[in-house]
């Protein structure tokens, strides 16, 4: 397994855990579930995402995907990017850094929207894994 694939799996696992633990709060409106685990896996997610972006940029990974795969790739990149961005804003607030009021008020709804997109991408990825394209080589 090459580094890019390993990072993709790391991203998928971290996003999966963060999403599953966050859905009760952000989508169902209940209490947050295992907040420490969310924090730990969010840090890992951020690190894996930065590394993946670097490798994907060097390998021009987007050219490998077409059709449903391309949609899942770009939607996934946007969703994970937003997840990392909102996570970073929450971290900044926690560290006492001043955020503009409109931005502070946008973090939670933006994160909720991101989780919906992550679920959508997850469904597409599941379909791609269950019904893989056969290699023509």
């Amino acid at each position: 397994m090459n580094t890019e694939k390993m990072l993709l799996w790391a991203l998928a696992i971290c996003v999966g855990i963060v999403t599953i633990l966050s859905v009760p709060k952000y989508i169902l409106g209940g209490d947050a579930f295992m907040p420490l685990a969310i924090q730990i896996f969010s840090f890992l997610l951020g690190a894996a995402f930065v590394l993946y972006l670097l490798i994907a940029f060097m390998n021009k990974s987007w050219s490998k995907y077409s059709g449903s795969g391309a949609i899942a790739f770009w939607a996934g990149i946007i969703a994970v990017g937003l997840l990392c961005l909102t996570g970073l804003l929450i971290l900044m607030a926690t560290l006492g850094m001043h955020l503009p009021q409109w931005l502070a008020q946008s973090v939670v709804p933006l994160r909720a929207l991101t989780f919906w997109v992550v679920i959508a991408v997850g469904i597409i990825l599941l379909s791609l894994m269950l019904f893989p394209k056969k290699s023509t080589a």
């Binding site: 929207l113 919906w116 997850g122």
Partner: peptide
């Protein structure tokens, strides 16, 4: 934030429906 709050659930649900449609089309 006012706009985001209003659209987050309908847009999120639409994204999931879109995801299911793409997955079904692929299958």
């Amino acid at each position: 934030p006012n706009l985001l709050e209003k659209i987050v659930n309908p847009l999120g649900a639409a994204a999931v429906v879109g995801g299911v449609a793409i997955a079904a089309m692929h299958a």
